[in-house]
């Protein structure tokens, strides 16, 4: 069995920092599990259909670290019904690992007959809010655990939106009981693309609704900021992170890096920067 007791104590004593588990680092971690991070986050879909190395690496890591799972295919905001066979697979995969968090995105990703494999926005209004509250409850009932949903980067909004993204998120969390994965990079990217003050966004979210914080790097495309997860965290995002960790000291922080993935040491270095900021904000030596 996993050392759950130790892990819970660790979570209580420290503000955890973790990194996303990526294939590029499997060999490094198979060789040695000695790292300076507190937890790893696995991309759910990368491990769902494998009894081979992708599953073994989770077992290996879980022997020393807590795990969280982060999915991209729940498709919770699509108008058609939820995909129960997908959710069943997620449940079967994650349950043995006793994950601290199981999350996905507040978005739609395509239709059952054609998955666009992208995190797509939808209009923020009363109609979609009612719809999503029902959906969240359905997922939580089936999974038997709290759902954590991430705010996404979007490169457009809809004329049908009657409220801002942060208002929608706050109401959704309040009415459904779901928790939020607070992606600070996405907040910054959206604030620049959609021209709003990121602090207004952050102020609107109740601290207790934040279950986790994500950090990543974007790419400046000239005419917009693109959420590529291919660079180190930008200084502007580190600044916002100070506010996020001050607001939600209980929430673990994760560094995501999905493209042009560097050596593990570089990723670990970003996690250590996050830890240093957490210590600074909370006045720890």
């Amino acid at each position: 069995m996993f050392q759950k007791e130790v892990i819970l104590n660790k979570a209580l004593k420290e503000k955890m920092v973790g990194v996303g588990l990526r294939t590029e680092h499997y060999s490094r971690l198979e060789e040695s599990l000695e790292t300076k991070v507190d937890f790893f986050e696995a991309l759910t879909e990368n491990h769902m259909n494998s009894a081979g190395r992708p599953l073994k690496i989770l077992e290996h890591i879980r022997s020393d670290y807590p795990l969280s799972f982060h999915g991209v295919s729940l498709n919770i905001a699509h108008h058609s019904g939820l995909n129960y066979s997908y959710m069943k697979k997620v449940k079967e995969l994650v349950t043995p690992f006793e994950p601290m968090i199981v999350s996905d995105h507040l978005c739609w990703t395509g239709a059952p007959e054609s998955n666009l494999h992208n995190l797509l926005p939808f209009p923020y209004n009363e109609e979609t809010l009612d719809f999503l509250v029902g959906r969240v409850n359905e997922v939580q009932d089936f999974m038997g655990r709290e759902l954590v949903l991430e705010n996404l980067s979007a490169y457009f909004d809809y004329k049908e939106s009657t409220m801002r993204e942060w208002e929608f998120l706050a109401l959704l969390s309040k009415r459904s009981g779901c928790k939020l994965l607070f992606d600070v990079n996405n907040i910054y990217v959206n604030s620049q693309n959609q021209k709003f003050d990121p602090h207004t966004y952050m102020d609107a979210i109740e601290p207790e609704s934040i279950a986790e914080i994500h950090l990543a790097g974007f790419t400046d495309m000239g005419d917009f900021l693109f959420d590529t997860h291919s660079k180190p965290v930008f200084p502007e995002v580190w600044e916002l992170f100070k506010k996020a960790t001050e607001k939600a000291p209980h929430a673990p922080t994760l560094i995501e890096w999905d493209d042009d993935i560097p050596d593990f040491d570089v990723l670990e270095g970003e996690a250590l920067k996050a830890r240093a900021i957490i210590s600074e904000v909370h006045g720890e030596a």
């Binding site: 209009p123 490169y155 004329k159 005419d223 917009f224």
Partner: peptide, 19 residues
């Protein structure tokens, strides 16, 4: 086209093409 409000300085086509 009628409902999309592009972000950044993207025009409608540019925004759609991003996706």
């Amino acid at each position: 086209e009628k409902t999309m409000l592009p972000g950044g300085s993207l025009d409608l086509e540019g925004c759609f093409n991003t996706y």
